[in-house]
């Protein structure tokens, strides 16, 4: 564990000793819970419709596939006209695109970013690397199946998929959301232990709390 995460005693103003335990103090440890949908079906349908038409992608490119997302902002593809935009902070984003291969080091950051996003949240695996390892199938450092570690709603195949394929994938995701089938966040909460076990199996230096939001 890194030094700044160790438990330590800090001298406060006025000579008071303050005990700091970063893992407890800086994070909220409460595990995620299953969040029920709205009471009435009409309201939930309205919400799902709004969610599907307002997809905010977390601006976190995890692998080479991130380069395929940039053209979507340009005049040629212009994803904004479908209500898709990029947000720089996980708090505001509701879609996490795992763009291509995911090394173990990045996986750790991806998990933390994912956990900071708010329910409902969606994960799209982009490229064959997220499906079965792709061309990194024998690498010592990249995971093979993304759905072992995060609940994935949709995969977009290809190495790399073209921006058109991404747009098509987002359209399919919209259908999933509108039908109310994209409940990845609740799935994550339900199978929390299984996901954590899988994550801890590959992340050897686990120096964060189990749930870091």
């Amino acid at each position: 564990m890194k030094e700044e995460l160790q438990k330590r005693i800090v001298k406060g103003p006025g000579g008071v000793d303050i005990e700091v335990e970063p893992l407890r103090d800086y994070y909220c440890e409460a595990p995620p819970t299953v969040m029920p949908a709205a009471y009435s079906k009409i309201v939930e349908d309205l919400f799902n419709w709004a969610r599907s038409e307002s997809i905010w992608i977390l601006g976190f490119g995890t692998g080479c596939g991130a380069i395929e997302m940039r053209p979507l902002m340009t005049p040629r593809f212009d994803a904004y006209r479908y209500g898709i935009q990029w947000r720089p902070t996980p708090r505001q984003a509701n879609l996490f695109v795992i763009s291509g291969y995911l090394s173990v080091k990045t996986l750790k950051r991806a998990i933390r970013s994912y956990e900071q996003m708010q329910n409902p949240k969606y994960v799209v695996g982009l490229g064959s690397c997220t499906i079965n390892g792709g061309m990194y199938w024998d690498s010592y450092n990249t995971i093979k199946r993304l759905d072992d570690y995060l609940p994935v709603d949709l995969y977009i195949t290809g190495c790399m998929p073209r921006p058109e394929a991404l747009l098509q994938g987002f359209m399919d995701l919209k259908k999933l959301i509108r039908a109310g089938n994209a409940e990845g966040a609740n799935q994550y909460a339900e199978n929390f232990k299984w996901y954590k076990d899988n994550q801890k199996k590959v992340i050897k230096d686990w120096d964060m709390p189990d749930y870091s939001w």
């Binding site: 199938w137 010592y140 093979k144």
Partner: peptide
């Protein structure tokens, strides 16, 4: 190593 650590699909 990869076969031992990461699950295949």
């Amino acid at each position: 190593y990869s076969e031992q650590t990461y699950r295949d699909r």
